[in-house]
Simulated scan of single mutants.
Amino acid sequence: MSSILFSPPAPFSLHPHAHLSPSMSILRRLHLNLRTRRRIATVSAAVRQDTTFWTPAPLSEVEPVAESLFHIAIDVSDAPDLAASHSLAGQYLQVRVADAPKPSFLAIASPPKLAAVRGVFEFLVKSVAGSTAEALCALKRGDVVELSQAMGSGFNIDRIEPPEKFGTVFIFATGSGISPIRSLIESGFDAEKRSDVRLYYGARNLKRMAYQDRFKDWESSGVKIVPVLSQPDESWTGESGYVQAAFSRAKQISNPLAIGAVLCGQKQMTEEVTSILVADGVSADKILKNF
């Protein structure tokens, strides 16, 4: 009997005049196609990124308004096209700060009319360590940043119009999610013509609750403010816990077909409030979000 010796296979190499088997040819084409698709995807991503039109604009105000929250105003009076791109409450844009790693997406807190009349965008920015937002909050008046055009479809208030048909509107916000809600309230959505408009606004405590100085004006426009504190001090006598729990305790839904809602803030809150409303018969189409 002859013996057969096995040795480790030599590294595969292809002679320049050798012919590929059909299976090898297919594998090679698949490999080349995959590399080509990756190159195309990389180039396409770069092209998409490069299509963003950036407009330089100076800061006109930078000031703390609550714990870790800053009011920032940016002068866009020299950029009328940029100012005009903000047409609906709930829209957002990108802000680019020198030396920051990447742009930051920020909801516009001011109503569109402020950009039209005064040429200003206002923001409520939460300063998070190591973020572009932190770099933005550290700037001074006169420092220049770059802005993209306003984007997003905003809050589609037409879906809960006319006010006579949708007399009840529940509004929910947590933390810096109050930013686009401020834009909505100050833009006006006929709150005074509705029978029950309530804003459930959640924060850890009063030190972290922005826009308290605007509550009186919001109430006079027809919006009842319900502050909800998750970690209040002993002197607090208002609603405590989470926004969704406070709403569940107080809600009285007799005609769900006459109810609209607007939500912005922490994901768990928006999901749970949506579930509560839908379970009570409110149409998902009448629950507005800005994303």
Score class of each variant (00 low, 15 high):
Pro56Leu: 10
Phe6Cys: 10
Arg208Lys: 07
Asp217Ser: 14
Tyr242Val: 05
Asp50His: 12
Gln91His: 11
Ala203Gly: 01
Ala203Tyr: 03
Pro80Asn: 03
Phe247Lys: 02
Phe155Glu: 04
Ala109Asn: 09
Glu122Gly: 06
Phe70Val: 09
Ile253Ala: 06
Ser153Asn: 15
Ala66Arg: 05
Leu59Ile: 07
Trp236Tyr: 15
Leu69Asp: 02
Leu14Ile: 10
Asp158Leu: 12
Val262Gln: 09
Lys126Thr: 03
Phe215Gln: 04
Thr55Gln: 08
Ala138Phe: 08
Val223Glu: 06
Val97Cys: 06
Arg198Ile: 13
Glu67Ile: 07
Phe123Asp: 04
Val226Met: 11
Thr55Asn: 12
Ile72Asn: 02
Ala116Pro: 01
Asn205Cys: 05
Leu88Ser: 14
Asp158Thr: 10
Ser77Asp: 10
Gly241His: 04
Ala191Gly: 00
His71Asn: 10
Val145Glu: 00
Leu32Ile: 08
Lys207Cys: 11
Cys264Ala: 06
Ile108Cys: 12
Ala250Lys: 12
Leu124Ala: 06
Gly90Phe: 06
Pro64His: 11
Ser187Phe: 07
Leu34Met: 12
Val278Trp: 05
Asp75Leu: 04
Leu93Met: 13
Ser25Lys: 11
Leu59Gly: 02
Gly222Pro: 03
Ile178Met: 01
Ala46Phe: 07
Asp217Cys: 09
Ile276Ser: 01
Val128Thr: 12
Ser187Ile: 06
Phe121Lys: 03
Ile259Phe: 02
Ile185Tyr: 00
Pro16Asp: 06
Gly188Glu: 02
Lys207Gly: 07
Val76Ala: 07
Ser148Leu: 04
Ala258His: 07
Ala245Gly: 15
Ala84Phe: 04
Arg35Leu: 15
Ser248Asn: 04
Ser44Pro: 05
Val228Asn: 03
